[in-house]
Computed example of a mutant assay.
Amino acid sequence: MQLDEIDRKLLRILQDDSRKSVQELGDAVGLSPSACHRRLRALEERRLIAGYHALLNPGALGFSMQFFIEVGLISQSEAALDAFEAAVRDIPEVLECHLMAGQSDYILRVVCRDHDDFERVHRRLSARLPGVARIHSNMSIRTVKARTGLPI
């Protein structure tokens, strides 16, 4: 997909701070507010901008623990994958779920408030997710790098 330097600069700025006004964005890339607005609309229509979100502080909200959980399924049939994926979407503590190629079928990123909360979530994963053969949990000690943006 072709992007010119103005588009790339707009996307980089928005990744760092999506609260900037169209006026501020236009000033930063050398466009009038109306021209900047048209550029943003075009980027949204081309689905290069998927949405605008607030980045919340998990620790400040009481989510002091983060886990990466590898899940192996009994079967890798399309029906088994669909059933697992539908069920995992209903667990709010699962922030991400990735279908993998390799040793595990899925890797989940899960947040919990404390050890008791993790036990509850782990039981829910084990008992309620269909077709689970094994679960291997890895606790994150500290986030070294977390970036929500892409290297544009």
Rank of each mutant, 00 (worst) to 15 (best):
Q2M: 03
L3N: 00
D7P: 00
D17I: 02
S18H: 03
S18E: 00
R19H: 15
K20S: 04
Q23S: 04
Q23Y: 02
Q23R: 10
E24C: 01
L25P: 13
G26W: 08
A28R: 01
V29R: 08
L31D: 03
S32K: 10
C36A: 08
R38D: 11
R41V: 11
A42G: 07
L43S: 02
L48D: 04
I49S: 04
A50V: 05
A50H: 04
Y52T: 10
H53Q: 01
H53F: 12
G59A: 08
A60D: 05
G62T: 10
G62M: 07
F63V: 02
F63I: 05
F67E: 13
E70V: 00
V71D: 13
V71C: 10
V71L: 03
G72S: 13
I74L: 14
I74F: 14
I74M: 14
L81T: 12
D82F: 13
D82K: 15
D82N: 12
E85K: 09
A86T: 09
A87C: 10
A87V: 06
P92C: 08
E93K: 04
E93N: 08
L95T: 06
L95H: 11
M100G: 13
Q103K: 14
S104I: 05
S104H: 12
D105G: 06
D105W: 04
I107K: 14
I107Q: 13
L108Y: 01
L108V: 01
V110A: 11
C112V: 00
H115A: 09
F118E: 08
F118R: 05
R124L: 04
R124K: 12
S126R: 03
A127F: 03
A127S: 09
P130E: 07
R134C: 01
H136E: 13
H136A: 15
M139D: 03
M139T: 01
S140N: 12
I141S: 09
I141Y: 10
I141N: 08
R142M: 06
T143D: 11
V144C: 13
R147S: 14
T148G: 15
T148Q: 06
G149F: 03
G149I: 00
I152H: 05
